[in-house]
């Protein structure tokens, strides 16, 4: 039997890579562990083995890739941590955002729309900078809620709000792209 026996589908994504389940993550270690696993389960390494082993290797390769993609992205990682703790981010059903937050969203959208209409490159870049700072702040709050306070309701709300911030980032990106072309 190959060294794939060391893997277990029961393990959560963090354990798969030998990491403690936390939002704050050593991305270098994640990447290294991922490469190690892929090196062991890579289908080419099992080409000489039977069909069952090869299929198993393929399964593991896919599983490790999915796990890696989930942990690599901050929002996906947060969502996964919520699941591990029996909480959900309810992004599809929860539209009860705080009025102050929605007001801010309207203002962001208007500012982006105005800058886009005026083809004001400097304004868009300024907005992009402000947004980066805001997202960084929110990610720190999310880390605090998930890793320190273990307040999963607050973390779920932060995940929902960050989805809007992600949308703003896209909008600014598209506006900048349109100006540059």
């Amino acid at each position: 039997m190959s060294n794939m026996a060391m893997f277990s589908l029961e393990k959560n994504h963090f354990a798969l890579f030998g990491l403690a389940p936390a939002y704050r993550l050593d991305l270098t270690q994640l990447e290294q562990s991922y490469r190690d696993i892929q090196a062991q389960v890579h289908p080419d390494k099992h080409a000489h083995l039977g069909e069952v082993e090869r299929r198993l290797a393929m399964q593991w390769s896919t599983h490790a890739n999915e796990a890696y993609q989930t942990l690599r992205q901050p929002l996906a990682r947060a969502r996964y941590l919520l699941q591990l703790n029996g909480a959900e981010s309810d992004e599809n059903s929860n539209t009860a955002m705080s009025p102050a937050f929605l007001m801010e969203q309207m203002e962001w959208r208007e500012a982006i729309g105005d800058a886009k209409a005026a083809e004001a490159l400097a304004d868009l870049e300024h907005l992009a900078g402000r947004l980066r700072a805001e997202i960084r702040q929110r990610e720190e709050k999310l880390q605090q809620a998930l890793d320190v306070e273990r307040d999963f309701a607050a973390a779920a709300e932060q995940v929902r709000e960050l989805k809007f911030m992600e949308k703003l980032r896209e909008e600014i990106h598209f506006a900048l792209e349109a100006l540059e072309n």
């Binding site: 599809n92 929860n94 539209t95 955002m97 929605l102 007001m103 929902r160 989805k163 809007f164 992600e166």
Partner: peptide
């Protein structure tokens, strides 16, 4: 009335 959908980032007033 203001609402927002986290799934897509849409906001509506």
């Amino acid at each position: 009335g203001m609402v927002g959908a986290p799934a897509c980032g849409d906001v509506m007033k």
